[in-house]
Design a protein around this nucleic acid. Sequence first.
DNA 1: AACATCTATCGTAATATTACAATTAATTAA
DNA 2: TTAATTAATTGTAATATTACGATAGATGTT
Lengths: 109, 109
Amino acid sequence: MGVTKSEIFSDYQNKLALAARVLGHPARIAILQHLFKTDSCVCGDLVGVIGLAQPTISQHLKELKNLGIIKGNIDGTRVCYCIDTQKWEELKELFAGFLDQTASDKSCC
Amino acid sequence: MGVTKSEIFSDYQNKLALAARVLGHPARIAILQHLFKTDSCVCGDLVGVIGLAQPTISQHLKELKNLGIIKGNIDGTRVCYCIDTQKWEELKELFAGFLDQTASDKSCC
DNA sequence: AACATCTATCGTAATATTACAATTAATTAA
DNA sequence: TTAATTAATTGTAATATTACGATAGATGTT
């Protein structure tokens, strides 16, 4: 065990959970915040800004890239990352659709 | 290692990541959807609705309760769960504040 | 070419998560 | 009281995640 039984859930449930899981680490939140803050794309200086080793940052960037919300551009020996605004909007809609649910007052608690 | 270095991140970053992590499992998404859908609070029939064993559901409910977004009410031998609407609004605001960020067009990618 | 710089990947250790069987605890029903 | 019902807890196995040292690969510099 220890493995999520994705097959018993809907595509929507899996998709939303996957996206939430990617946001579920402070380093990835910090990376995204930094990418939003700096107008120019950020490269390896994320390692300096956030206090984690280079391979760790690289690993987090990979997960963000896999989700699709950031893009990487090779620029010499450097790699320049930025938000994929299209995908970010999709992410926003995905979460909004879920979070906008409202509970009925018929609740027993 | 394998342990998140929470101490190097801000309270906001940790708080948001923690909340996202709780949403980061399809069973918990399914539980929340079911609680929203059924007007009356749901009890152990979550075990029937979702295809997981009772202790597993109980464990997921515990995490949702820890985050504060659901409440449990003891009703005989049963426990009745529902959304904590106040906390749900706070969660919505937390995510909205983060997701509403927009990237500048000065991006290099 | 030789060296420096930057990032990705590999390997691995420590820890966390997921799932469930078995059990316990609490309440209701007989 | 005894039995039945329901949910939480405990224990544990399988897997995933996090972090980083070491290394490789790619590009730029001298």
